[in-house]
């Protein structure tokens, strides 16, 4: 299982099926929390996740496809689109340098 230390995270990619709807919404929420920390947050379709992503976040229904696309990148799934604890987990790990794992 791929892992990454929170302090090494540079680029968080939020993925959804089309890369046009829910991922844009989640990315903009996440961006407001993470860009003050110098982290870039982008959104893409799940089949076009770039190789230079530090961490990928997507709904758990798409997590398998995301992990297949980038087998060596940490994929953090979430269950609900607003207020899911996975978002806080990633934010905390980045702030405190904890390890994140797929």
């Amino acid at each position: 299982m791929p892992t990454i230390n929170g302090s090494d995270v540079k680029r968080v990619v939020v993925a959804c099926d089309a890369g046009m709807g829910s991922s844009v919404m989640v990315a903009s929420t996440l961006r407001s929390k993470l860009s003050p920390l110098g982290i870039e947050v982008v959104h893409t379709p799940v089949d076009e996740i770039p190789a230079d992503a530090s961490v990928v976040m997507c709904h758990q229904g798409l997590a398998q496809r995301a992990q297949t696309k980038v087998p060596d990148t940490v994929v953090i799934p979430f269950a609900i689109f607003m207020g899911d604890p996975a978002f806080a987990k990633v934010e905390n790990a980045i702030k405190t340098g904890q390890t994140l794992e797929s």
């Binding site: 959804c16 709807g21 829910s22 709904h59 229904g61 269950a79 609900i80 607003m82």
Partner: peptide, 25 residues
Amino acid sequence: GSIPGVAIIHFFGGIHEVYFPYILM
């Protein structure tokens, strides 16, 4: 507590994905 925001995004914003998790639960 989270539902009003979700319902607004779904019905007015048109992002239906936000309601899927509640059915999956």
